[in-house]
Design a protein around this nucleic acid. Structure first.
Length: 226
DNA sequence: CACCAGGCAAGTA
DNA sequence: TACTTGCATGGT
């Protein structure tokens, strides 16, 4: 294992990103993500889970499901303030309702309201269109691309940053794009791998790598600290 | 009671 | 450019 004496950060050389994946997969097994029945549900969930625990998102999703609103054409008929009423449990409900509207409007405008056309679009075009939606940032966009569109994009989130910076595998000040490039340059381009890896990072962070507990006892990555 | 959760945009200096 | 703040419910 090579460590850069300047930064103390491990060199990506053989190859820490794959090692970590193996450790996590061996410890936790497959995570079966994304937890949603349809691609549309995944897309909605990606917006609702912004800075919010998934448990609360499930309640909001259930409200939409029970009202038979969890499909593109039904949800598109509602105004933002009507959507807000159903998604209250997920928090920021006014904001997120408008963000969902913005997303639906983008699909209406760019893809003539055809979800399947959007899901099948060229990766970079789809990503640009998603990022142009107010309320859709890089993580939300990439989550939709990977888990709804099945595109080979690695998703970075706060957990990814926390776990990997805490173990000195990326620099503390690394931004989204930098981290994403590190992962994607170090891993084979494989949707299934990206899917499982991100889910495993969320799993280990939620289970062991808490914000207020810098020491992750009994964490499967424990031995990596140096 | 304080703090956190699978972000993002807008405001300030 | 580099911080800071608003958005909000629900669980620990």
């Amino acid at each position: 294992m090579i460590v850069n004496p300047q930064s103390g950060v491990r060199q990506v050389q053989n190859n820490i990103f794959i090692e970590v994946y193996q450790l996590l997969y061996d410890h936790f097994g497959p995570q079966h993500w994304w937890p949603g029945e349809t691609a549309f549900e995944v897309m909605v969930g990606a917006v609702l889970t912004q800075n919010t625990t998934w448990k609360n998102v499930v309640k909001a999703i259930d409200n939409l499901k029970n009202a038979a609103l969890l499909d593109y054409s039904s949800l598109s008929l509602l105004a933002a303030d009507e959507i807000a009423g159903f998604i209250r449990p997920s928090g920021y409900y006014n904001l997120k309702a408008q963000r969902l509207k913005n997303l639906l409007n983008m699909i209406a405008k760019q893809y003539e309201g055809d979800l399947e056309t959007f899901f099948a679009d060229n990766l970079s075009t789809a990503r640009e269109n998603l990022l142009a939606v107010k309320g859709v940032g890089p993580e939300t966009a990439d989550s939709i691309l990977l888990y709804a569109c099945g595109a080979p994009v690695f998703v970075i989130d706060t957990y990814t940053h926390r776990v990997f910076s805490r173990h000195n595998m990326v620099e503390e000040e690394s931004d989204y794009q930098t981290m994403q490039e590190s992962f994607m340059e170090s891993l084979p381009e494989d949707v299934r791998l990206y899917n499982e890896y991100h889910a495993l990072i969320v799993r280990v962070a939620g289970g062991f790598c808490k914000k207020t507990k810098p020491l992750c006892e009994h964490c499967p990555l424990q031995g990596l600290n140096l």
